[in-house]
């Protein structure tokens, strides 16, 4: 398992190294580069920060300083399913916090955390701009409007069924071989 993660990380860094030359070496490239890394890998690893600093010829601490300033960048790998609960004004008034708590309770993690099995990560976000559908949650890339605690249950149940199905298929495949 550890080897698998290590191999993944190496592949990721190799990929970043191959992408960097496409970006200019001026300071203005810093945020677009960090965005590229975040989007391709869902997080910015410490090793990647160092590579960016080398590419732009600026101190590592500056890259770190910029990356930690913006909400978009994560420094730990997220879960396989990423859940964002909107806490914009309209969502707040319509009980967004209750929805967030429901996810926290179901997943047994706080927002900003990833479950130990790396299946789920949970995040609170400020306004995704779908206020008329409040409260809103974004599960992976899908926007869910008018979320109620019962809908949270439904979503989690859906994931569990999907996962069980996957495992069953995996077992069947293995036993078939």
């Amino acid at each position: 398992m550890d080897n698998e993660i290590k191999a993944q990380e190496e592949a990721m860094l190799k990929d970043i190294a191959s992408q960097l030359p496409a970006f200019g070496k001026e300071r203005g490239s810093l945020i677009p580069i960090l965005q590229m890394i975040q989007e391709n890998n869902a997080y910015v690893a410490p090793e990647a920060i160092k590579m960016v600093a080398e590419h732009l010829g600026i101190p590592t601490c500056e890259v770190y300083g910029v990356a930690t300033f913006y909400n978009q960048f994560r420094f730990h790998p997220p879960g396989r399913h990423h859940i964002k609960v909107c806490l914009g004004t309209a969502c707040h008034i319509r009980g967004g916090e209750i929805i967030l708590e429901n996810f926290e309770r179901k997943l047994e993690i706080a927002h900003g955390e990833t479950t130990p099995d790396r299946e789920f990560s949970l995040e609170r976000v400020a306004c995704v701009g779908c206020c008329a559908l409040a409260p809103v949650a974004i599960v992976d890339e899908t926007v869910h409007g008018h979320v109620a605690p019962s809908k949270v249950e439904g979503l989690m149940l859906g994931f569990r069924i999907e996962k069980e199905k996957e495992e069953r298929e995996k077992q069947e495949n293995e036993s078939g071989q």
Binding site: E62, Y64, T68
Partner: peptide
């Protein structure tokens, strides 16, 4: 060294390899 993080949690960081 540089400023890192944001808002109330802003700090001075020596972060580097």
């Amino acid at each position: 060294l540089a400023f890192a993080r944001r808002g109330f949690y802003t700090t001075i960081s020596f972060y580097g390899e």
